[in-house]
Design a protein around this nucleic acid. Structure first.
Lengths: 128, 128
DNA sequence: CCTATCCTGAACCAGTTGGTTATATAACCA
DNA sequence: TGGTTATATAACCAACTGGTTCAGGATAGG
């Protein structure tokens, strides 16, 4: 997992870590304060923070005994940018197209059997 | 990893799987066709597809020997929706605010020592 | 039938993850 | 100094990941 984008997505793939980020969206917080809502031990939270730090999503300062954690959203921007390439695939318009094609498959099975169906499936439709 | 959002982010946290999705964005594809660009074995690709399928990002049909894979973008929509909550944190405006606050920390350390600094750090600033 | 093609499943392996408890480390406070 | 608070590190564990190889199961096609 070397590339930054993979690190970011991996860091987000845990509900505890996403909750920590949500808390940090409200402002800087200490580690114990971040740990409070969860039933896990402090070292577990420390590990989660290390994952978030490695992904560049959290920066930790130094304040006497406290290590104030701050959200750093730049990697989220990259993740959102990657997802943006797929926005057209979840637009209402395309969903309707998907349903239309699926309905055609169910309605015309005989015609599909007569034709070289797998060619159509793997090539022709592959180009839409 | 039970919740769908975690499954989605975990599925995206691998460059091979993201490349598979990118290929599927061009259209339906068979497994061997998907495997071609990579140096890994077929079972490895099969496993990646299983991960993507479990995340709901891919649906596999049946076409003679072929298992045509199709992109299913709905989970990406949810992931993008989650990220959207953090958009304000990577806007230019807020980055400038961050830099401003950091500069204040560096410029006013004496005043900070006189005041109960950790309270300010952990509470007052936490409310912005 | 035989054979080639497409794909999956089983068994294995090393490395990572997410958690634990127990033990430091570091700074404040009296 | 000694005690309390905040956090990190170490050592361990079970489970998961991403890869492998080997052995299949379907299905098309000569």
């Amino acid at each position: 997992m070397q590339d930054p984008l993979s690190n970011t997505f991996a860091a987000l793939a845990d509900p505890t870590r996403r909750a920590i980020l949500a808390r940090l969206a409200l402002g800087v917080s200490s580690v114990t304060e971040l740990a409070r809502p969860f039933e896990i031990s402090m070292p577990a939270v420390s590990k989660h923070l290390k994952v978030l730090e490695r992904a560049g999503l959290v920066v930790r300062g130094r304040e006497a005994q406290w290590r104030p954690c701050r959200l750093q959203a730049a990697p989220l921007k990259d993740a959102a940018g990657w997802l943006e390439n797929y926005r057209r695939f979840w637009s209402i318009h395309l969903d309707a197209l998907e349903r239309h094609l699926d309905r055609m498959d169910q309605v015309n099975p005989k015609e599909a059997q007569a034709a070289p169906r797998h060619r159509r499936h793997l090539s022709k439709r592959g180009q839409r």
